[in-house]
Computed example of a mutant assay.
Amino acid sequence: MIEVRFLRKSGQLVAFTYEGHADFDEYGKDIVCAAVTAQCMMTYNGLDEVMKIRNVIDMNQDGGYLSVSIDSAAPDEKKDAQILMETLLLGIKAIELQHGNFIKLIEEEV
């Protein structure tokens, strides 16, 4: 099962992490893993390459783990990043709605 965790601070999303494998299908054919990975990487690339928002990324090169934090970004950067972060959250919720046996979504206020 994939666990996707979103952290909020003062109401703003400041980090997301996904860990694990969905085991929906065999490696290379797992549409749940592919969907989560694609959405998370798209969000990271938008934050990093397009918006140039300071972030910290940690990932397993073999897959199964990605963590992105914008907690150290400037307040205006965090505010601007909410569009991408909230969109990612909506996308993960949609995947969970369709494939809830393979993904667990956690939202925390820190």
Rank of each mutant, 00 (worst) to 15 (best):
Met51Gln: 10
Lys52Leu: 08
Lys52Ala: 12
Lys52Cys: 08
Lys52Asp: 11
Ile53Met: 02
Ile53His: 02
Ile53Phe: 06
Arg54Glu: 15
Arg54Gly: 14
Asn55Val: 03
Asn55Asp: 07
Asn55Cys: 13
Asn55Gln: 09
Asn55Glu: 04
Asn55Ser: 13
Asn55Lys: 03
Val56Thr: 15
Val56Ala: 11
Val56Asp: 13
Val56Gly: 10
Val56Met: 10
Ile57Cys: 10
Ile57Lys: 14
Ile57Trp: 01
Asp58Trp: 00
Met59Trp: 00
Met59Ile: 03
Met59Thr: 11
Met59Asn: 08
Asn60Gly: 03
Asn60Ser: 12
Gln61Trp: 04
Gln61Glu: 15
Gln61Leu: 13
Asp62Leu: 05
Asp62Tyr: 00
Gly63His: 05
Gly63Met: 06
Gly64Ala: 06
Gly64Trp: 01
Gly64Tyr: 01
Gly64Ile: 05
Tyr65Thr: 06
Tyr65Arg: 02
Tyr65Trp: 07
Tyr65Lys: 03
Leu66Arg: 01
Leu66Tyr: 11
Ser67Tyr: 15
Ser67Thr: 08
Ser67Phe: 13
Val68Ile: 12
Val68Arg: 00
Val68His: 05
Ser69Cys: 07
Ser69Leu: 06
Ser69Phe: 08
Ser69Val: 06
Ser69Gln: 04
Ile70Tyr: 07
Ile70Ser: 07
Ile70Asp: 09
Ile70Pro: 07
Ile70Lys: 01
Ile70Gly: 07
Asp71Arg: 04
Asp71Met: 10
Asp71Cys: 04
Asp71Glu: 15
Asp71Ala: 13
Ser72Phe: 09
Ser72Ala: 14
Ser72Ile: 12
Ala73Asn: 03
Ala73Phe: 06
Ala73Ser: 13
Ala73Arg: 00
Ala73Glu: 09
Ala74His: 13
Ala74Gly: 13
Ala74Gln: 14
Ala74Cys: 08
Ala74Val: 11
Pro75Glu: 11
Pro75Asp: 12
Pro75Leu: 01
Asp76Ile: 12
Asp76Trp: 09
Asp76Met: 11
Glu77His: 07
Glu77Ser: 11
Glu77Trp: 00
Glu77Pro: 02
Glu77Lys: 00
Lys78Pro: 08
Lys78Ile: 15
Lys78Glu: 12
Lys78Cys: 11
Lys78Ser: 07
Lys79Asn: 14
Lys79Trp: 12
Lys79Ile: 14
Lys79Asp: 15
Lys79Ser: 15
Asp80His: 05
Ala81Cys: 09
Ala81His: 12
Ala81Asp: 13
Gln82Trp: 06
Gln82Leu: 02
Gln82Ser: 06
Gln82Ile: 02
Ile83Lys: 09
Ile83Tyr: 14
Ile83Gly: 09
Ile83Trp: 09
Ile83Leu: 13
Leu84Arg: 00
Leu84Tyr: 11
Leu84Trp: 06
Leu84Lys: 01
Leu84Phe: 12
Leu84Asn: 03
Met85Glu: 10
Met85Leu: 13
Glu86Leu: 04
Glu86Ala: 03
Glu86Gly: 01
Glu86Val: 05
Thr87Asn: 07
Thr87Cys: 04
Thr87Asp: 05
Thr87Ala: 09
Leu88Thr: 09
Leu88Tyr: 05
Leu89Lys: 01
Leu89Thr: 02
Leu89Val: 04
Leu89Met: 08
Leu89Phe: 06
